[in-house]
Amino acid sequence: MENSILKVENLNVELDGEKILENLSFEVRGGEVLTILGPNGAGKTVLLKTLLGILPYEGEIKWAPGIKIGYVPQRLPFIKDIPMSVEEFFQLKNVSEKEINPSTRAELGAGLVPHRNEVSGAGEILKSIGLGKEILKRKIGELSSGQFQRILVGWALVSNPRVLLFDEPLAGIDISGQESVYNLLEKLKREKNFTILLVTHDLSIVYKFATNCLCLNKKILCYSTPKELTTERLSQLYGGKIKFYEHKHE
């Protein structure tokens, strides 16, 4: 398929002997916003991590060659314990560069590791996340949750990615912060036409923002446009019977 950014086929993930993801197959094209929905423990975060290449899996994950991925993780509870300025946090990007050889780069689905010379200027990144340069000297621990979330997005943008992976970007942020982070996502999408994969519980995002949604509970329960995401399907996903998939050791 032309313009395919990501193709997943028969993806299976098993952690500590427990099946987390079963036979996932889906495809993401350039410029799409795919939201991943599902109850707690459905494997949403695991799916993102697997796509990033940091968890073992069976099956096939094919990223478009040379594509760069920016990852915005769910929560970083420990960061506030570390006395660190925003600028220093950005300097942590690229620290591993020297250790990565081209073959692991390819193995990781390529593009997870940026080249130093491709790092865009701090000013430009701060502008795109709607923050001023004065924030660079601030202590990370003193930021509001909304500001911190923006910094995380900015951190992912440093490597100049084409794809962004978000894990619940609005969780734990107050309402005004949520609004601003949401507006940021929309702005990034509009201005740079990122392809976005987004795990969320927030259905308003799905209806306003997504081009496709994937309902996940170990297996793919539905894969559709937001319009086709009916109440029936949602209750099936969240409230309905949750099947227990038995796993037999051999």
Binding site: K49, L52, G53, I54, I69, Y71, P73, L76, F78, I79, I82, M84, Q91, L92, K93, N94, V95, S96, E97, E99, I100, T104, R105, L108, L112, V113
Partner: peptide, 20 residues
Amino acid sequence: YPKMILTNISEDLAKSEGIK
């Protein structure tokens, strides 16, 4: 030092940056 700091912040983030 910087790799450990990033790992302490988030192991996933560190791994996604290619840190062993």
